[in-house]
Amino acid sequence: MRWNKLSPIGACWLLGITLVLLLVLPLSAAADEGQPDGVSQSSQCVALVDEVRKENKKLHRELRQIKREIALLNQNLEEPGLREIAAGIGYILGLCGVAALVATRRQGAEER
């Protein structure tokens, strides 16, 4: 069909259909949004996102706290404890004991 051969009635039909489409489509879309079901869904979504965000924040805080505790623990582990102190003193006394033993033996050998 050529446009220049279009009859007036056909043109009217075409215009009418186009108008109807132009009117109906936006309306139907608006009707979709306006449905009560859709509203509750979207508000639920928002609430969920809020919940997730809150949860995230809480976890973040806890994670930071745990990290801090780990750092503190590491620091405490690096610091020498009672065991190391006792070990060191024991080493020193033991070394001096060995030295005293060697010295007395040498003295004894000289006296003989």
Partner: peptide, 14 residues
């Protein structure tokens, strides 16, 4: 080193 001083050395070192 004087061997009579060994105990003192031990204590001071500790």
């Amino acid at each position: 080193l004087d061997q009579r001083e060994l105990p003192k050395i031990a204590v001071v070192s500790s």
